[in-house]
């Protein structure tokens, strides 16, 4: 997990994931070029490549943005999340290709430097139909570069997960810039209603899955735990927790995962130290709580990763009485051992 860094920690699943990704991109770009050359015989190869790479990057960005909320709505999508970083880096590389061919085709043959020309050739800022849309795409590409360059556990660890996450939330700024880039660029020159419909559908999909996931999360966060006994709150019924899985509850604005394993109860912070993944949506495998996102593991009684790994999450005091799990909402220091509470027969 964290004891050493390698460029890519390859395994069979990552290889299969990347193979599917590469074949999918090759098929898309190949089909786009062939159809484009057939339907528009006068179009240059550069134009077709610009459009093939640009549309592929935008489609991939839509997929990347939908994976997170889809996983919160249905765990079957977790398969896509496992290697999402590679999708993000590939999106940047396709965008870079799109930008390079565009600069070559539209800005390389004048007197000005292509990058200067990109920002100065069109200054119709007052017109929506003639707005300089290319700089919007370039700014989005810079954000995608920052994200691709830091898509590694080395940066995640050194920047710390909250800072890294905040940096990667810039993807929404990049997405907004690209929606503007496409709307004010391609959709101004191409009149096909199908293109407008496809763009509207992608926008509706991205926004609606995020709203649906946010609604689901909000319901969990706002569920109140009123029943008190000393410092403890009634968290849930023992029967609500599936064996070797967890029930996630929200106390004082933070989520806690209460696991049932081998007739015992343990409670940990729901936030994985790696990428803040939801530990409570994982399972206990080989005696360890295993994060559903990238497989980081923690011992349920201490919240510490097994040696040689060093990650630790907070633990919580629990007790079990009359089939109810009671939880002390004050988190203990990460890695603090708490004896798992035995479940009486209920």
């Amino acid at each position: 997990m964290s004891h050493q860094y390698v460029a890519v920690g390859w395994n069979a699943q990552k290889r299969a994931y990347d193979l599917v990704l590469a074949v999918g991109i090759a098929l898309y770009v190949g089909t786009f070029l062939a159809l484009g050359a057939w339907l528009h015989p006068t179009a240059t190869a550069e134009t077709l490549l610009v459009r093939a790479l640009g549309s592929c990057a935008f489609l991939l960005l839509n997929v990347v943005l939908c994976i997170g909320p889809l996983c919160r709505l249905d765990s079957r999508f977790l398969l896509l999340l496992y290697n999402r970083r590679h999708l993000g880096v590939t999106t940047f590389l396709l965008g870079l290709g799109h930008c390079a061919f565009s600069l070559f085709q539209f800005h390389a043959l004048g007197d000005a430097d292509p990058l200067v020309s990109l920002f100065t050739a069109n200054r119709n800022f007052a017109s929506l139909a003639d707005f300089p849309f290319q700089p919007l795409g370039f700014l989005a590409l810079i954000i995608l570069f920052l994200m691709a360059a830091t898509s590694h556990d080395f940066w995640l660890r050194n920047l710390t997960p909250p800072v890294w996450k905040a940096l990667h939330m810039l993807v929404y700024v990049a997405y907004a810039l690209l929606v503007a880039h496409v709307t004010l660029g391609l959709l101004q020159s191409e009149r096909s209603p199908w293109l407008v419909a496809a763009m509207a559908a992608s926008l509706a999909l991205v926004l609606s899955v995020h709203l649906a996931a946010a609604w689901k999360e909000r319901t969990l966060d706002e569920a109140s735990l009123n029943k008190l006994e000393g410092n403890f709150v009634a968290a849930c019924s023992v029967n609500e927790i599936p064996e070797k899985c967890a029930k996630v509850i929200s106390v004082r604005g933070e989520r806690v995962a209460i696991f049932k394993h081998d007739g015992k109860i343990s409670a940990l912070s729901n936030v994985c130290r790696h990428q803040n993944g939801p530990l409570g949506e994982g399972r206990i495998i080989d005696g360890c709580v295993t994060c559903p996102w990238h497989g980081y593991q923690y011992l349920p009684e201490s919240g510490a990763s097994p040696p040689p790994f060093t990650e630790k999450v907070s633990t919580f005091q629990t007790k079990v009485a009359d089939g109810t799990v009671w939880l002390d909402p004050v988190p203990l220091a990460p890695g603090t051992r708490v004896e798992p509470r035995r479940i009486e027969s209920v």
Partner: peptide, 8 residues
């Protein structure tokens, strides 16, 4: 985004 898209 939808407002901007429709306006565009």
């Amino acid at each position: 985004l939808p407002l901007f898209f429709v306006a565009g």
